[in-house]
């Protein structure tokens, strides 16, 4: 297996790593860089637990090769809070009890942030479609949708 040397930016930090040519970005994050916030649910792009953004686009990191992200700008769940200060989405997920086992939560947070960045005032339907690529096996989706609605309201100062 030939290795690939990659230089990239993750959560604002310059990062360099070597990985196998066929190694998914998710495995690089978790196994090589110690960033275990992104989870592997399905590994085939169905569940969204590994969601990250690459150059501002929401993607499943299990469907991106580590080798592809040279020169890219990546945002992961580890970069969402500002030090000890949680992002409003994170606070609202807690206050709305929008999680149970927590495996899907980082992916939901990343996808919800991508949604609100693009559309600060989404309808409930837009939220549900926006999060359709994230599966949760514990809570159902209602509390998650409410937490996103509350965050949207809070961030708009409404």
């Amino acid at each position: 297996m030939s290795g690939v040397f990659v230089s990239t930016t993750i959560n604002g930090d310059s990062v360099e790593f070597s990985c196998a040519a066929d190694e998914p970005l998710l495995d690089v994050l978790r196994n090589r860089l110690g960033m275990t916030g992104s989870k592997e649910g399905c590994g085939t792009g169905d569940c969204g637990a590994c969601s990250v953004t690459v150059n501002g686009r929401l993607v499943c990191s299990c469907l991106v090769l580590g080798a592809e992200v040279g020169g890219a700008t990546i945002e992961t769940i580890e970069g969402m809070a500002d030090g000890d200060v949680l992002h409003p989405l994170q606070k609202n997920f807690i206050s709305h009890a929008a999680l149970q086992c927590g495996i899907c939560t980082p992916g939901f947070l990343i996808a919800a942030k991508a949604l609100l960045d693009k559309n600060p005032d989404p309808s409930e339907e837009e939220i549900r479609f926006g999060l359709a690529g994230n599966l949760c096996r514990c809570t159902g989706y209602d509390k998650i949708v409410r937490a996103v609605q509350a965050t949207s309201k809070e961030m708009r100062g409404a």
Binding site: G45, G48, R57, V59, L115, F129, G133
Partner: peptide, 9 residues
Amino acid sequence: IGSKQIQGR
């Protein structure tokens, strides 16, 4: 085609 995540790629 697929989810927002898939649409990104």
